[in-house]
Nucleic acid binder design. Structure first.
Lengths: 159, 159
DNA sequence: TATTGTTATACTCTATAACTATA
DNA sequence: TATAGTTATAGAGTATAACAATA
């Protein structure tokens, strides 16, 4: 099988080792994301807004009103899927659709006062559970490592 | 609104600041996990096995045969949900159910040769896309940060 | 013609509820 | 009674296909 003896420690300077470690990290990262996603979905179930919806609300808060197509591209879903998300948010009174000033095909999605309030409130509450978990289960240095990694993960997720 | 002036830089020693940063990290981590999950699901669609299924296969490979209830607990899903996952894996020929030696209620789920082969193959291939992305979009030091963070994220996901 | 938004429909994953068999 | 597994059913989220309106 041409296996490397696992008792020989990895040489950090060996480019083959580096590539293998990168693949291992990638594989493990995928599984962790999958596991964590199930966790978070369950934890935030029944809170009124799903994570996908929050992601859209925060984006609108950050970037201002956007069209369905823009939002779908940013959120990495199809416009039809995002249309459903926006439909749910609109039904909850968090966003509204308005006509585009110059292009009659487009609709502009914007936060309502209630939507803005929801974003601010969520920011304030910190969505408790995961923050608590980090405080309890990670040492300060580990918390910093995670804090450094998160923007890198976002870069990967948006690529 | 009692807002802190955002132009004043955060004091790393201020415990309130630390708590706020932790909440911000937690909130952002949730959204990134959600976004990344969509990404990965889409990327691995049609590959035959889903991420949740791979997670079970790898666990069986690592820990040996397990019952449905054990697997469900480890994977943070209900036994009924895991039963469906195992059903799909069994239909694909990756696992088999056998009677428990002493407890007639239990069934023991074990990898087939095909299942073991699939795990090894996946290990080998490194599931390309994300590893490529990390290699292209992250500097070596950033790759190390992510590699350090992944086990911490697993700790959070399994808590 | 191409683009934007929408409706209709289906599939995957996970949940709850209810049942059977065994301990 | 309690536990392990299963079946049936429902809901959330996302996909594809098809269509109308507008550029």
């Amino acid at each position: 099988m041409d296996m490397v003896d696992p008792t020989v420690p990895a040489d950090p300077a060996d480019p083959d080792d580096a590539a293998r470690r990168l693949r291992d990290t990638a594989e493990e990262l995928q599984l962790v994301v999958s596991l964590m996603g199930r966790h978070l979905r369950m934890a935030s179930a029944g809170s009124g807004v799903t994570l996908g919806q929050v992601s859209v609300l925060k984006r609108l808060d950050r970037e201002g009103p956007r069209t369905i197509t823009d939002l779908a591209r940013a959120e990495k879903v199809r416009p039809q899927s995002l249309n459903a998300t926006v439909g749910a948010l609109q039904a909850g009174g968090y966003v509204e659709r308005a006509a585009h000033p110059t292009d009659g095909r487009r609709k502009v999605i914007a936060l309502t006062d209630r939507g803005r309030h929801a974003v601010a409130e969520r920011q304030e509450a910190g969505r408790g559970r995961l923050a608590d978990l980090m405080a309890r289960r990670l040492a300060p240095a580990e918390q910093r490592t995670v804090a450094e990694a998160v923007p890198l993960l976002r870069r990967l997720a948006e690529a």
